[in-house]
């Protein structure tokens, strides 16, 4: 029943797409079939995989930095309260504000390069990673801390055995959400100014009116991001098996 409904909704989407392509809503609108054919051609020619590899480099560089800096910073903010009280204001601002506005500045500073995309990916994802690590530490149940202290836990034991495991679910959720924002940032950066990766493939297809290629690349990008995020979700559930 559940499966039937889910399959029905996918089928309905494909039918609607096919219908929209046949009407046609716009001459720039390829059918699902044409898109799949273009996707196959892009995969076999290697163009798509090259572009994906380029994008993956920016993503890994930027998101890796966000994770390696953001998590420790968030933990520090949570453990050393005064640091947290000040730093969180800036992190809050970065979360609430449209960071895309900073892209031209990043491009001016770092030039048109993979480094620029990576910096943009970092700016998009780091605030969420940091904020969740901070929130995770702050939400540790005081009862648990009291309990550990009552049993004579040292500061190191307190952090390592109580604070970190308690904060882990939120840290992981922050990483997953940060990664989803990283993808958003990556695409904005590549579409806008860096002639690299998947964004470049989308833009060149568009400018050459090869809309089936463009749709195929967009579809590929969305599926790729979805698969990566789902995979991370899997790892997360694995690590958090104790949460019933």
């Amino acid at each position: 029943m559940v499966l039937a409904l889910r399959l029905a909704s996918v089928a309905a989407f494909l039918l609607a797409w096919e219908w929209a392509a046949r009407v046609p809503i716009s001459f720039n609108f390829p059918s699902p079939g044409a898109t799949l054919v273009a996707l196959a051609a892009l995969v076999t020619s290697g163009a798509l995989l090259d572009a994906t590899a380029t994008s993956a480099r920016s993503l890994l560089l930027g998101f890796g930095a966000a994770a390696l800096l953001g998590v420790p910073l968030g933990l520090l903010m949570g453990v050393v309260r005064p640091v947290g009280r000040v730093a969180r204001i800036y992190v809050d601002l970065l979360i609430a504000l449209p960071t895309a506005a900073l892209i031209p500045l990043v491009i001016l500073s770092f030039g048109i390069s993979i480094l620029s995309s990576a910096v943009i990916v970092f700016v998009f994802s780091a605030p969420f990673v940091t904020m969740n690590a901070y929130g995770g530490v702050r939400d540790v149940r005081p009862r648990l801390l009291e309990m550990a202290r009552a049993f004579g836990a040292s500061w190191g034991q307190l952090v390592g055995r109580v604070v970190l495991p308690s904060a882990l679910p939120m840290i992981l959720a922050g990483l997953r959400y940060g990664l989803s924002r990283a993808f958003v940032g990556l695409l904005v950066a590549e579409l806008l100014l860096s002639p690299f990766g998947l964004g470049k493939l989308i833009m060149t297809s568009r400018s050459m009116f090869e809309h089936d290629r463009m749709f195929a690349t967009v579809l590929w990008t969305l599926l790729l991001a979805g698969a990566v995020l789902a995979g991370l979700g899997r790892v997360e559930r694995r690590l958090l098996r104790w949460r019933a």
């Binding site: 997953r176 958003v184 990556l186 695409l187 579409l191 989308i202 967009v218 969305l222 991001a225």
Partner: peptide, 10 residues
């Protein structure tokens, strides 16, 4: 959680 920015060209 998808990078919807990719859909802007669409």
């Amino acid at each position: 959680s998808a990078p919807l920015s990719a859909l802007v060209p669409v």
